[in-house]
Design a protein around this nucleic acid. Structure first.
Lengths: 361, 361
DNA sequence: ATATGTCATGTAAACGGTTACACGGACCTC
DNA sequence: GAGGTCCGTGTAACCGTTTACATGACATAT
């Protein structure tokens, strides 16, 4: 049995299709009596409007596409959560496409979304991906969240450089001098900006930089940690380009018998929920991930709905905040570390507090 | 400027719309010459087929909806990753809708997806949600992944009961006698089945059961851990209904000065990536999450594409596997724990190995 | 009484694809 | 050369909405 159409409903309610449409969209004048008859028919026939047909005549899909490099780790999961909440609040749906590690895959994903979304949020931290994305999207509004600051296009970027500088300055203030950076993958703009910030801050402090390669994964952080533990001149601090690697490195260093933070201090980047759950909890640069996702969605929807208007093509900057935890500063009362992080971590805002109690741990 | 339509392309290539459609869909016979002209026109006009129009005439959307209770934690992020990979491989898109903590929100989400997806995967671990979901979905094929074994409808369920029994038996075999269960939220079918398994295994072993409330979150696990540490009769083992709570509890117990596993052994459930990164790494019941998501998608797409055929309404059971790590059995060489987990953990299969190196840490 | 305005409702034309069917030309066979 | 196939192409109907515009009923003003 084929699904009911608006005509079936109209027939059963003994009205015209126009009236059915008016009732269903709450637009236009209808008598209370007709409204009732229509709703009853809708119910009886289990009618659901065909979204394709609707989108054909309105040329709106009420759907936002999200292109992610990968869903691994907690970073992206948090981000999507923020977006989804914001999307639903505005009547939009989210189409996600993840696991694009190459520019090719990402552009295929963008192409296949064209025509079925009203706008797209692209997180493609690869060099050139920004231009690529906006080229491929055609007329589809797009919001970039890739690493490179791009003032031309609507985008949200993290102040990676500033965050890295803050990390190094924190370590320097603690008296650390042999500060190593575990870098993210080459070609990743976030990673490169963080490295640049590290280099600059080290130079300013008059310290020699030392960089170990990484790939943003826990495994690569672990490897880096192993090599540092075995190295001739052992560092007294590590600044990893993200939390995942910081955690991996910390485990390797601890397994090698080093004490954190006494022998070696560790600082990460992102503040994923995990980092307050490892011991010692990790000092990091906090980005309010879910909130950033929500913000991205809001901006995109705003520019979609304002259509022709001057869509303020501003590049918005998110400034990470240094959250100090025991991985860089020894806890005064080791027996009660847990309570300590809680108070040290800045309070979560609306999203994380209300809907995601885990963030608070 | 309005986007180009198939007619614009036809005009420019000097062919009929039928030919354009044939070229674009690879269906029907076309000369190489026309094919070229059409593709050229498509390129020149930046033509993208309107997915709504297409879905109107084919009555297919090539989209699968996924309804999640929430995206928090790594469990769902892993699951989606598995689904997304499988979906893309088959030319499908994924619409996700998360953060539905109540049955009401979930049903609203299901309703709003009707008509825009070819099928839905529903994870609603609430009592009654199963019936609700299949009622709401109308004619839309649906695959359930909620806790209760439902033989009537196509579904994939975890063998929660069996897993819980295995956990308890493991602890009993280690000589533990005061085994406490940290339960999941009431009304959650997964949680209830795990608790039932615990009760049964305890009874069979002749041990008195003891249950502490929890809510599947790290915070609730932490609270439970605190209360256990302060309790008059301290347990010598904890079986938490999921990994999140197990980790939270472990931290609380450690902060209270207890040694894991010497003073108290801990077993979790799920095997989220995080658990091999806490110290000691957690013994748990492994579910290959991404693989399960992939499997779910495959089954759903299969039943969509086989349409009228007897859609084997089978209920598939995923059996978790006990993975023993140092949180229940003390490591023999503490300095080298990391290598140890790696070898103890069962090898990941295709998805996690090939595309998600982090799982291996 | 007729004119005028208001308002609920109906009619029909888009929207942009797919595809059954018709058509005409090239090639083959007898 | 007539008849038959095959095959590339075009025509037009159809998918299920929305919505501009037309219609007609009824109330009010003149």
């Amino acid at each position: 049995m084929k699904p009911a159409t608006i005509r079936d409903v109209a027939e059963r309610a003994d009205v015209s299709v126009a009236s059915v449409s008016r009732v269903l969209n709450g637009a236009g004048p209808v008598t209370e009596a007709t409204r009732m008859r229509v709703l009853e028919a809708v119910e009886a026939l289990q009618y659901v409007p065909h979204s394709g047909a609707r989108s054909l005549s309105t040329s709106r899909t009420n759907t936002i596409g999200v292109i992610l490099p990968d869903l691994y780790g907690e970073y992206f999961s948090e981000l999507i959560r923020g977006m989804d909440v914001a999307a639903r609040a505005r009547g939009y749906h989210l189409i996600v496409s993840s696991s694009h590690d190459s520019a090719d895959e990402a552009s295929a994903a963008i192409r296949s979304m064209r025509g079925r979304v009203d706008g797209m949020i692209v997180l493609s931290p690869h060099v050139g991906a920004a231009n690529l994305a906006s080229g491929l999207a055609g007329r589809t509004p797009i919001l970039l969240m890739n690493g490179g600051a791009d003032v031309e296009r609507p985008s949200i970027v993290i102040d990676n450089h500033g965050g890295a500088v803050a990390a190094v300055e924190h370590l320097v203030a603690l008296g650390r001098t042999r500060i190593v950076h575990i870098a993210g993958p080459t070609g990743n703009l976030d990673a490169e900006a963080r490295m640049a910030g590290y280099m600059e801050a080290m130079a300013r402090a008059g310290l020699p930089p030392r960089v170990v390669e990484g790939a943003f994964t826990k495994a690569s952080g672990h490897e880096a940690g192993e090599s540092l533990a075995a190295a001739a001149e052992r560092p007294d601090a590590v600044f990893a380009a993200n939390d995942n690697m910081a955690v991996g490195a910390m485990l390797a260093l601890q397994d090698a018998g080093l004490r954190v933070p006494e022998d070696i201090a560790i600082v990460g980047f992102d503040d994923i929920p995990l980092v307050s759950l490892v011991r010692p909890a990790l000092t990091t640069l906090k980005i309010n991930i879910a909130e950033t996702g929500k913000r991205a969605l809001q901006r995109l929807v705003g520019s979609i709905e304002s259509a022709g208007e001057v869509a303020a093509a501003a590049c918005e900057v998110v400034r990470p905040e240094l959250v100090i935890r025991p991985s860089s500063v020894a806890a005064t009362t080791p027996a009660n570390r847990y309570a300590r992080h809680r108070s040290l971590a800045t309070a979560g805002e609306a999203i994380s507090k209300g809907e995601h109690p885990d963030d608070q741990v």
